[in-house]
């Protein structure tokens, strides 16, 4: 192995660890139990090229203000816990690098259209209840785990019909960006409607009629106006706008 001179080692070391720059992280703080409105608090945070918004928030929590309320878990865009508005747009904090934002001021707020628990943590009760309402599981009378039934085989083409919609991590970003959710508290929302399509498109499922009946109501699928904002913010490529339009295709007779 070639030897490295002390000078070279110093140069490599300098290249590998650039001096961190600082940004201003503005965090929306609000405790509905004690306060009547939110306030923005500014913090100076050192960042590297790879620092994510979640890293910056956790730096603040560790060194500057331990009271910041933020929900997070996997730090790799798999759990859907750290959704928030970053510079006004719903995004996952763990999946958004500060260097990508091209701004020295980064503002984080709780996601819109969800009740605030505290600071950046929002209440997902309505998201989960709408998701459950549309029966997010295979409906059929027989089963592959009882009797002498065989497994339900699917071709790769069958799987492709619903696979991307099964990647939903229930982060709520789509519901936060949706213009209908902004005004209609009874709307099922893009997340739930897309999951309805995910099961309707699955050829193992026999609950199509049941689910189509559930979405065919005044605060259901007809309140989607194809603004596409849900698909714009989805961090997993689920494309809720496509799922909802394809689901509506069944109701309008374009699909069988």
């Amino acid at each position: 192995m070639a030897a490295i001179s002390p000078k070279m080692a110093e140069e490599v070391s300098q290249t590998a660890v650039p001096t961190p720059k600082s940004i201003t992280l503005v965090i929306s703080k609000f405790n509905p139990n004690h306060e009547s409105s939110y306030k923005f608090v500014e913090f100076k945070v050192p960042v590297q090229k790879w620092t994510t918004v979640l890293d910056a928030i956790l730096y603040v929590k560790q060194h500057l203000d331990t009271s910041i309320a933020v929900r997070y878990s996997c730090r790799q865009a798999s759990c859907g816990s750290c959704g928030m508005k970053i510079n006004g747009k719903p995004s996952l904090a763990c999946y958004t690098k500060i260097s990508e934002l091209n701004s020295d001021i980064v503002t984080v707020e709780p996601m819109s259209n969800f009740p605030i628990i505290r600071d950046l943590a929002v209440d997902f009760t309505s998201l989960f209840s709408n998701h459950k309402k549309l029966k997010p599981y295979i409906i059929r009378e027989d089963s592959e785990i009882v009797g002498d039934a065989k497994e339900f085989l699917q071709t790769p083409k069958d799987v492709e019909e619903y696979l991307q919609f099964s990647y939903c991590i229930k982060c709520g970003l789509c519901n936060s960006a949706c213009p209908t959710m902004a005004t209609d508290s009874s709307f099922l929302g893009p997340q739930a409607l897309t999951q309805a399509y995910r099961y309707v498109a699955d050829n193992r499922d026999k609950g199509k009629k049941e689910r189509l009946k559930m979405v065919d109501e005044s605060h259901g699928i007809w309140r989607c106006h194809f603004a596409g904002s849900c698909s714009k913010v989805c961090p997993k490529g689920v494309d809720p706008a496509m799922g909802i339009q394809l689901l509506r295709g069944y109701l309008l007779g374009f699909r069988k």
Binding site: P32, N113, T180, T183
Partner: peptide, 11 residues
């Protein structure tokens, strides 16, 4: 809880 809806302005 405060609903935090964006309302017509956000829409």
């Amino acid at each position: 809880r405060q609903s935090n809806r964006e309302g017509v302005k956000g829409m």
